[in-house]
């Protein structure tokens, strides 16, 4: 399972994770090695075995929809890198 540099760059782009040339090479090597090791899973016969997403399954967890107060806007915005008039500031999405 050898990854190419292009595949590594594509993965980083999918999650918008900035990585430099040196990281690209290191991740190419390490991820290839890890995925190679994980080929072991292909030995397991999982015919008719359903997947488990949660080990201790609870189904249809419902509760009453009761109105209650939210956190104060000023507290929530206190950690915002950029804010204006009670809103988060974001960069232009369309250019």
């Amino acid at each position: 399972m050898k990854l190419s540099r292009e595949e590594v760059k594509h993965l980083a782009l999918l999650v918008r994770l900035g990585i430099n040339e040196e990281e690209t090479e290191r991740f190419r090597e390490q991820l290839s090695n890890i995925l190679e090791n994980f080929q072991i899973l292909q030995q397991v016969d999982t015919t008719d075995v359903p997947p488990t997403a949660h080990a201790i399954a609870l189904e249809n967890v419902l509760r009453e929809d009761e109105p209650s107060s939210s956190l104060p806007v000023v507290d929530v915005l206190a950690n915002a890198p950029s804010q204006e008039e009670g809103y988060f500031m974001v960069r232009a999405v369309l250019e």
């Binding site: 899973l41 397991v44 997947p51 488990t52 080990a55």
Partner: peptide
């Protein structure tokens, strides 16, 4: 399918 779903099926066997 080959990785994530396979791992979840193996998870069932381990459980």
């Amino acid at each position: 399918d080959a990785y994530y779903l396979k791992a979840l099926r193996v998870r069932t066997l381990i459980r």
